[in-house]
Amino acid sequence: MYSKGKEKTWKFFVLLCGLLMIALPIAIGIFLAVKGNALFYQYHHTLGEFLFTTTWKLKDDLVGGGKGGAAVFIVGSLIVCGLALLIAVPFSLAAAIFMTEIAPKWGTKILRPAVEIFVGIPSVVYGWIGMTVLVPFLQNVFHLKTGRSVLAGGIVLAVMIFPSITTVAADAIRAVPVSARMAAYGLGATRWQVTHQIVMPAAQTSVLTGVILGLARAFGEALAVAMVIGKTPAFPKGIFGQTATMTTVIASRMAELMEGSEAKAGLWTIAFILYLISLFFIFLIHIIAAKGAKKNK
């Protein structure tokens, strides 16, 4: 039955749900910004101190006066995630190429579902296995005092982001027109030549998007990393050293701190930085996509 009221209500709700998608990320950003600002306005720390000094000793009270240097966490995140990328990207690309160029049938039937299942495995399970298997393993193999290290964090994160990068890369590679491949084969190129000279360069932009998405996931992962990296709030001494990251400090400290205290405000600031980094990655993906589109014009 047609009724104008019904149509209007329906449209209102549909639009409302659309608007909610916009409202949520904005609201999250605003709340974190407001809370995180306390570190600077209420407790009078400077952005320079926060970004470039290394002593993180904020007071868990309303008076403040501690030291708020988050450089260790920022650098820790960068190092662990960078290491994870270094490990994951070559494997991801190889797996994606295998799925699309080498054995498409076998790849889509077995490897692709397997990779997709990897995506769903909870991060705490990765962290738990990392802690109970990988950490002792590293300890024994390299004769360390403890296997909790940047390397362990990098490996766990690499395993976690491998599937996301692989699926995006495989889609990107598959999207390269078959005709371009045939043209190269027709000139007498081998499969490897076609893959790395024609297909990969053509898929480059989208593959990069996948890598950034993986990096974003790595940056935001908290618990799995916290379980294998240790708690030392200092710059790591090599890949076997321990450190802390932006997410691990939030995960391990937030609960014990008083609401409204200087120390808690510091953690909110770090959370806001994490939010900004997510935004930055999305922004980066759009810039790369736009550049890629322009190049082909």
């Binding site: 935001g220 997510s278 990655f281």
Partner: peptide, 27 residues
């Protein structure tokens, strides 16, 4: 803009979303 918002939402670290929930629904 809406699309970018959805992308942002999907790439937010879950701990950040958890903190948001903690802040507005609990604190």
């Amino acid at each position: 803009f809406l699309r970018i918002a959805i992308e942002t939402l999907s790439s937010l670290p879950s701990i950040v979303v958890g903190l948001f929930g903690y802040l507005i629904f609990l604190v």
